[in-house]
Design a protein around this nucleic acid. Structure first.
Lengths: 223, 223
DNA sequence: TCAATAGTGTCTCTTAGACAATATTGA
DNA sequence: TCAATATTGTCTAAGAGACACTATTGA
């Protein structure tokens, strides 16, 4: 499978994030084929025009082969391209990112022949191709959204406490947030719904919240 | 030139913006070939792997055939794709946008056989392919930046007054801004340099400013 | 009671927004 | 002087940040 001078190789890569144990993690795949055999990489694959209605469709098809649940949130980051990023020749890789709730990481299929790994962002190994740059760009998109107060509700379980939500944001931003400031902002946030249920525990129980139906990880008012 | 089922058509489109007479304008080209012959469209072209080192290189090559000046600012917006967006078949179009200073729109070449037009954003005609969606996305990127106080210095002439800069921002955002608020923010902005030159006129002369060398239309502190 | 966590209150400081006031020029 | 535009100041309100305080639970 090589690209010739007329037709570039068209591939899709996916940065699949989760927050587990208060740490932001990324799904990596150990490459079982050349090129870059044996290196860790983002999950990805080659576009199949006869199967894929568009690039997002291709991303979903590829995700489906690794993950057994449907992901609501899948968003394009940008495209990487050039003669040299892939040894097979001139290539275009369009990067998508997706968010997987922590309570569903069991949905990652282990039967695959591939070696899969949830890797903490802080300690990623060297990656194949230009995937380190890709991770950086995907992270930028996610962090910029959370920093501008868009809630990463796609990463939460169905019912969650505000402390859990805050820890999730902190894991993404890699910095601690002030509890009071965080909660004050949520007072006016229509994306989450206060429930009359409480989480039991050894200490004072925390109130449960859930995401509004149809919430999005996106700017509320599009300019 | 048709794409077959194995190899999608790979094209680049460009949204070239300027602000002239306090209005945001976009360069459009009347298509002289099928498909969509006769319709207005964004300037664009097909990737030539043997010529283009990457997609941005392709965008620059295509721009060069329309514009006789080098553009500092050229940035990827996103990629559009699918079976149906181009009647020639499965295609990927990567959209870039660029900013041209108002005093350099003469650099748009008229000798071309193509019909060119600077069109006000407010009154764009119907466009070919999915170019209306593309314009919307490019606008979103530009507006989001200006709204978050990144100065569109790439659109200004070498020396400019603060009123001119404000009018430029207003044209992009399509809303008026408060003079006092606008200037207050600029006090702390390191991207512009106060000059000891003034613009003559029938009224009180306005101070000239210029952009810092190496300024960018981009977020200062990357997250 | 205490430890631990949930949740609220309070103070200061910065900034945005609206609008008024002052400054400078040529006619 | 006046009209027109440039530039600065002032008041208020909203929000961010830091930190202290109160509330509720099980042990």
């Amino acid at each position: 499978m090589t690209s010739d001078i007329l037709n570039p190789l068209v591939v899709i890569d996916i940065a699949l994030f989760t927050v587990q144990e208060e740490k932001l993690k990324l799904l990596l795949v150990k490459r079982s084929n050349t090129p870059e055999k044996g290196k860790w990489a983002l999950p990805g694959g080659i576009l199949i025009p006869s199967k894929d209605s568009d690039l997002e469709g291709a991303a979903r098809r590829i995700l489906k082969s690794k993950i057994s649940v449907h992901l609501q949130h899948l968003e394009q980051v940008c495209s990487f391209s050039g003669k040299h990023r892939d040894p097979r020749g001139w290539s275009i890789s369009t990067l998508y990112y997706a968010l997987l709730p922590a309570d569903q990481i069991h949905a990652v299929m282990n039967e695959s022949v591939e070696d899969l790994q949830w890797q903490e962002i802080q300690s990623c190994p060297q990656l194949a191709f230009d995937h380190e740059l890709q991770v950086k760009k995907a992270l930028q998109v996610v962090r910029r959204k959370v920093a501008s107060h868009i809630l990463p509700l796609h990463l939460m379980r169905k019912k969650f406490t505000l402390t859990e939500l805050q820890k999730c944001c902190e894991a993404i931003l890699d910095q601690t947030l002030d509890k009071s400031v965080f909660r004050r902002r949520l007072k006016n946030n229509l994306e989450i719904i206060e429930l009359d249920e409480y989480e039991g525990g050894a200490q004072r129980p925390a109130r449960f919240y859930m995401a509004r139906k149809g919430f999005e990880f996106n700017y509320q008012e599009e300019i």
